[in-house]
């Protein structure tokens, strides 16, 4: 196998630089040979080469579905990519508890909720509830963390009021189910309210959900964002380190 040119990377199937991608999509046109040709042309005009319509299917009501394999000539320069990332070391629950006791000397207070339109608590529950997720206990199980999970569809105002009343160190916001990017609007609303009240600096503001990343969270004005595969330790560790940093 020849060596990868990191300055010009393209998709890989079974031969370096073959550029193979798989696509699947629906076109709002009736099924038939013309539809297949339309799918092919759409792929070509999108910049793909040698599109192969491996599967085409009638969706009914004048829609057609396609599975397409194609090649791409487009390359990216991997050497110039920098993604801001959380650099903290992942600590175990036991270590976090110990560090809070020794370095902070009081309990950390965390308030969390699914805000506004979102009714899906699976994310916030995984981080906060006693049982946690996948064997990683949630924040409620931490002796050194006072955790308040407000649940689903909590208005930003209520979440903020709770954070103020319990003097929270951090506010956790989960956004799981989204449509037409409403999760971004919800998240932005929280930042706006905090800023309006002049309380943005008072709390660590953290969001989480399958569509979120650290980078996107920073862009939205949050202190951190966590995607899938995050456990309570990650969040607790971040809050702990941030609280310690503020003390210096």
């Amino acid at each position: 196998m020849s060596k990868v040119n990191l300055k010009a990377v393209r998709p890989y199937g079974d031969t370096l630089d073959d550029g193979i991608v798989q696509l699947s999509f629906t076109l709002p046109i009736p099924f038939g040979e013309e539809a297949k040709e339309a799918a092919k042309r759409w792929a070509l005009q999108s910049g793909f080469q040698e599109p192969n319509i491996s599967h085409a299917q009638d969706m009914g009501e004048g829609f057609s579905f396609f599975v397409v394999y194609a090649r791409s000539r487009v390359t990216v320069d991997f050497t110039v990519i920098e993604v801001p990332q959380l650099t903290q070391v992942r600590l175990e629950k036991r270590q976090i508890e110990l560090r809070i006791r020794e370095k902070v000397g009081r309990k950390l207070v965390v308030v969390g909720a699914c805000i506004e339109s979102d009714a899906h608590t699976v994310g916030i529950d995984a981080i906060m509830n006693m049982k946690g997720y996948n064997g990683h206990k949630g924040l409620e199980s931490y002796h050194e963390v006072e955790a308040y999970n407000l649940g689903a569809q909590v208005p930003c105002e209520d979440l903020l009021a709770k954070a103020v009343s319990v003097s929270a160190d951090a506010i956790l916001i989960s956004q799981v189910v989204t449509q037409k990017d409403i999760h971004l609007r919800n998240l932005t609303r929280m930042v706006e309210i905090l800023e309006l009240e002049g309380l943005r600096e008072r709390f660590l503001l953290i969001c989480g959900g399958p569509r979120l990343s650290y980078e996107l969270a920073k862009e939205l004005g949050y202190d951190a964002g966590f995607g899938t595969g995050t456990y309570a330790e990650d969040v607790a560790g971040f809050v702990l380190e941030a609280v310690l940093r503020q003390r210096i």
Binding site: M59, G60, E61, F63, E116, S117, D118, A119, Q153, V177
Partner: peptide, 19 residues
């Protein structure tokens, strides 16, 4: 929903707007 019926669905649930 009509497309789903053609695809074989027997029951269509219209999910409500969250909230």
């Amino acid at each position: 929903a009509r497309a789903a019926a053609r695809q074989g669905a027997d029951i269509i649930a219209v999910i409500r707007s969250t909230g």
